[in-house]
């Protein structure tokens, strides 16, 4: 191809990149400005005075609590999902029993369920067992709804593990628990890191469950918290921008440091949609 053609192609790709990045850059810039400057000034000008205090204001105004809730709920749900999914995948792929493919099928059907079709009964179930407005309802819901996709990502890896390892371990008198926790689980570290990343993105960003099951401010996570918060600060764009940047930061940092894992996780979770 000639040079002009290549320049045109790069221009197209560059424009798409600008479209993808520009709104976030704008958001970051206005999170550091005051209203007067945002409304009167040019949108992509650097702040005349960098108002870092916007961040301090919203953090102390309540975002800190939401942030902490998001962190612990995300982490606990990731640990539960990874552990339970690994155990179930281990039993399905490595142990010998008649119903294993049927049970696997059940888990995979779970991939196709739109959560909105289940949310009213789920709300009622939690209401009946007093788990409404309790963060543990969120933790177990995240765990359950992420199990199918997590197991799907794990399956391919478990199928490729060589049988000889188990045979040798069992002949040496190793128990199942020891085999799983000491030998198999450590071997799956590469795929575990992928599922941790993908679960982190899902849990951190989830909105509907928290919005439906949690009503007290003290238990809300960032996604729902920023909704209320923005209502409160409706007119202060700088504060809204700072709130949004705080909510994006952990995922963006994870992406900067583990971008290959994120790409891998997102492509392998493509079926979830």
């Amino acid at each position: 191809m000639n040079r002009l053609g290549y320049i045109f192609l790069y221009l197209c790709l560059g424009l798409v990149a600008v479209f993808q990045i520009l709104p976030i850059v704008w958001l970051f810039l206005f999170s550091l400005k005051g209203n007067r400057e945002i409304f009167a000034g040019s949108p992509f000008a650097l702040p005349q005075e960098w108002k870092w205090e916007n961040y301090l204001t919203v953090w102390e105004g309540g975002i800190g609590t939401y942030f902490f809730n998001s962190v612990w709920i995300t982490v606990v749900a990731i640990i539960l999902t990874s552990l339970l999914a690994s155990m179930a995948t281990f039993a399905i792929t490595r142990m010998q029993w008649k119903l294993s493919s049927l049970v696997l099928g059940l888990f995979m059907v779970g991939l196709m369920i739109p959560i909105h079709s289940a949310i009213i009964p789920l709300f009622n179930m939690f209401l009946n067992v007093n788990l409404i407005d309790n963060p543990w309802s969120i933790v177990i819901t995240y765990t359950a709804y992420n199990l199918p996709i997590t197991m799907m990502i794990l399956l391919g890896f478990y199928y490729t593990l060589p049988r000889e390892i188990e045979e040798a371990a069992i002949i040496d008198g190793c128990s199942i628990h020891r085999l799983f926790f000491r030998i198999i689980l450590p071997m799956t570290t590469p795929v575990l890191s992928t599922i941790v990343i993908i679960n982190m993105i899902y849990n951190w960003n989830e909105f509907v469950f928290v919005n439906t099951f949690i009503s007290s401010d003290q238990y809300k996570t960032l996604t729902v918290g920023i909704q209320n918060f923005i209502g409160q600060y409706m007119t202060d764009w700088g504060a809204i921008g700072a709130t949004l940047i705080i909510s994006l930061l952990p995922i963006l940092l994870a992406f900067i440091f583990f971008s290959n894992k994120v790409v891998e996780g997102i492509s392998s979770s493509a079926v979830k949609g």
Binding site: A85, M95, A118, M125, I176
Partner: peptide, 29 residues
């Protein structure tokens, strides 16, 4: 590797969670 108790121990926690929180609500819906 085909000990029923062990299989149940490994597969049931996940299966019960998915059953209660995904499949039962669908039926209830």
């Amino acid at each position: 590797m085909s000990n029923k108790w062990m299989i149940a121990f490994y597969v049931l926690p996940a299966l019960i969670l998915v059953g209660i929180l995904i499949f039962i609500p669908l039926g209830l819906s």
